[in-house]
């Protein structure tokens, strides 16, 4: 946990703050923020990120395109991704899974679910 640097990607500043606070309570204090997929890719280039939490619906570059780009980029394809979004239709979840998302949470989420999913992904 000590070496874990998380990138939280969401276009809503409120949601980013809630995610950052929830992560802090769970013991994950090293968090970088990005407002969309494009911004996130830029942050991934300069920061040593080893876990990504991303929203789906964002301007500039949405979460699905962002994850697809990550999975086709050598340096980024192994970084675990947790998607946190309002999209709860099964077909959307399957699309996210196909894009390479490791796990998926529908908003509004509980802190326990967020913590549990991070731990599950990290445990492999």
């Amino acid at each position: 946990m000590a070496d874990l640097k998380i990138l939280a990607v969401d276009d809503s500043p409120t949601m980013r703050r809630i995610i950052v606070n929830t992560l802090k309570r769970a013991g994950y204090t090293d968090v970088v923020e990005a407002q969309d997929g494009k911004d996130a890719l830029a942050k991934l280039k300069v920061e040593s990120i080893n876990f990504v939490i991303t929203d789906w619906n964002m301007p500039e570059m949405d979460g699905l395109t962002f994850v697809t780009t990550m999975r086709s980029t050598d340096d980024l394809k192994e970084i675990p991704v947790l998607m946190v979004t309002t999209r709860s239709v099964k077909d959307d979840i399957i699309d996210a899974m196909k894009a390479g998302v490791n796990s998926y949470i529908v908003k509004p989420f509980t802190p326990d679910t967020l913590k549990q999913k991070i731990e599950q992904i990290l445990a492999g």
Partner: peptide
């Protein structure tokens, strides 16, 4: 950028079913 079905209470798929899919 928005989800036209965004809802506070109405989740079309619950967390257990999402986990099963994965």
């Amino acid at each position: 950028a928005f989800d036209p079905r965004a809802d506070m209470n109405d989740k079309k798929t619950n967390q257990a079913d999402i986990d099963n899919l994965f």
